[in-house]
Amino acid sequence: MKPKIAFFDFASCEGCQLAVLNCEDILLDILELVDLVEFREAISEKALRYDVAFVEGSIHRDEDIARLRDIRARSTYLVALGACACNGNVQARSNFVAPAVNYAEVYGEAARNRVQVDPEHWPLWAHTRVRPLDAVVKVDAQLRGCPMVPSEFLHLVKSLLKGTQPDFPAVAVCTECKKNENECVFDRGQTCMGQITWAGCNSVCVNNGYVCDGCRGILPDANLAAHLQLLREHKVAEADIRSRYRLFCGAEPIGRGV
């Protein structure tokens, strides 16, 4: 029997699901081998059990938690799809600002008052602490990055079809940078998150003249003290360091400053 595959999303831009759809040249072949039962971006069918659930987005509200637990309970294998699901992504920056301030900033004073007085809107008000999926449920695999990397998606799909353990080596972006023989960002007089960030993106940002901002999350044994010291030595202001660490990883220990 073909494995039943489903896609779900929480707080996200759905760009990772789009990145899946962008694997055009092989997508139809994949669809021959699996049974796609839920995918809001493409179909509207529903099923009770899933062999593999791909879950995009970060978790904010109580009802998100309940829904994610339900998906987990009905899935054999659960994949966190993209930076929102793996490390909280940019929306986790809101964890550091009081909700009232955020509301006023985004929707204006009137909206802020409404969520305070209108019970219909209280759940919004009660928002929020942005979390990655693994803060709520067990996650079996993570497809990191903003957006996720198609070659890693394919590797995972093939491994699952074959029944082998997918392999996402815990190495730093620097490793890929050297294999690509990039000039080090520090030689350009800039600073970088590559030393502590999960590789797998093929150092795409540095290949294209930018720096690594850490969208793929922080490596399990990253030497955070050394990185902090390195940025300080390169005269990055404390506020900028904090902001940098929170850009994609506000929900992670590094962003929380622990």
Binding site: A172, C174, T175, A222, N223, A226
Partner: peptide, 10 residues
Amino acid sequence: RCFSCGTCNL
């Protein structure tokens, strides 16, 4: 201060 990035090897 090592990051275990492997640059020195590569």
